[in-house]
């Protein structure tokens, strides 16, 4: 995503904030506040008898403060470690396919059984490759499924059913 990089203004202007630091800082602030607020809804307790919320509240607040420091860094020229690194665009479609493949496995493995779930999972994942055609993805996923079944079912005897309840296995 090319919009992540800040646009350098001419000399004399204050430079635009460095976007990656802005995003990272914002993420820390949001996550820190989320943990702190959710944590404060549990019993916070006292220093002697710390309740369930004590540590999450304290750490959440600390994370939010660190997030502010990272945001401040964005306005002060950015993190030197990544400032000059050329970033490629985010691979939304490929990344989405990979995440979708993993989620598919989680949702369907108990219902469909190992063999079909594994085939679909690896097929979706393989489609994320550069220049992988559906045919090539199908061949790849068939091979990987066979390999996994040999390793986990035949050799390790993990007792995951090959076909799940929905398929009458």
């Amino acid at each position: 995503m090319s919009t992540e990089s800040g646009v350098a203004h001419g000399a004399g202007h204050r430079p635009a904030p460095f976007r990656p630091d802005l995003y990272a800082g914002a993420a820390f602030i949001v996550l820190g506040l989320a943990f702190a607020i959710a944590g404060s809804r549990y019993d916070v307790g006292s220093a002697l008898r710390m309740g369930s919320g004590y540590v999450p509240l304290a750490l959440g607040a600390l994370l939010a403060v660190l997030g502010l420091l990272v945001v401040a860094m964005a306005f002060r020229g950015g993190d030197p470690a990544i400032r000059d690194v050329q970033r490629e665009p985010v691979p939304w479609r490929r990344g989405g396919l990979l995440v979708g493949a993993v989620m598919f496995f989680g949702f369907f493995v108990s219902g469909l059984g190992l063999a079909p779930t594994l085939f679909v999972t690896t097929f979706i994942a393989a489609l994320a490759g550069h220049g992988t055609s559906p045919l090539k993805a199908a061949l790849t996923s068939a091979g990987i499924t066979a390999l996994c079944l040999v390793v986990f079912v035949a050799l390790l005897r993990l007792r995951l059913p090959l076909l799940g309840e929905w398929l009458g296995g």
Binding site: V102, T121, A128, T140, G143, I144
Partner: peptide, 9 residues
């Protein structure tokens, strides 16, 4: 292209 689907699996 073969390695990463296998890792996922």
């Amino acid at each position: 292209e073969v390695m990463f689907p296998a890792i996922i699996a």
